[in-house]
Amino acid sequence: MIRSTHLPLLITLATFVLAYALCASAYPAMLSWRVIANLLTDNAFLGIAAVGMTFVILSGGIDLSIGSVIAFTGVFLAVILRDTSIHPLVAFALVLTLTTGFGAAMGATIHYLEMPPFIVTLAGMFLARGAAYVLSTESVPITHEFYDTLQGLYWKVDGARFRLIGGLMVLTFLVGIITAHRTRFGQNVYALGGGEQAAKLMGVPVARTTIGIYAVSGGLAGLSGIVFSLYTSAGYSLATVGVELDAIAAVVIGGTLLTGGYGFVAGTFFGILIMGLIQTYIVFDGTLSSWWTKIVIGGLLFAFILLQKGLTWAAQKRAAQARRRTATGSAALS
């Protein structure tokens, strides 16, 4: 059964299908496995980070540190693989611990010092970016056989190469969807987004959940950084500036309410694909400036925010009507 809360998700899905149909009618070549495979590969790092952002926004928060954490992760890996003989897997574990801990620390600050997430993660953004600069101001190339091995992993369909990192993103989304809807942690995230005070009175462990949410976001930004380093084979402290904003855009286009409480991880997946599709279209066209991507995404964002306003308004109206209906119903019933 389709419920009203699923409507934004369906609209995102419809937008994607429509956008793809439009693209395909203009450039039939876009209707190929190659394009789909590239869509996944090119947007892998953004998608992974956006999963974390979805949890943060669902809980009513925001995480501005993502882009910096991704850059830091890249530089950290590049420097550590250049200067030491540590195996990349160990380096991955190390950097994931670091970024998860960093997120958890931001979550703890937000909760215990009762500071707005905007401010705390803004500080986190400068901190992580600064740390990346300290490690290296130049782009550091990564050359390691293990990286070559990982980059060489793919699954071939009709000449299209589905690479490891794209698969990792899809996996992250699947885990994210299950976590949001089928675990207590996920339910607590929604509860926080619905109202912290009520959630607290209902026994939601607010401290643990808040810390957990930002730890997940930090950890996924770390994973995104690893993926980005696999994608670019380098670490650069000036990379991925503003990626947090792209992630927020994907989440909103995916139908999640920016004020928290309502939305779906799956929506973000299609948000990412829609944004990727626009980029692909511009590449296919060849004459349009890449800035058009930004403009179209801006337009889309605006449209989706208007849509959400409209839907919230309609839902409130419907709820008020339903309330009037059921009020008489229940009065009659007993």
């Binding site: 207590r184 339910q187 607590n188 929604y190 509860a191 987004g193 619905g194 109202g195 009520a198 959630a199 209902m202 026994g203 939601v204 409480g261 309502y262």
Partner: peptide
């Protein structure tokens, strides 16, 4: 919580 379903509210936690 207004954003959860009746059952989710009943069994939260």
């Amino acid at each position: 919580l207004p954003n959860l379903t009746v059952a989710e509210n009943l069994y939260l936690g």
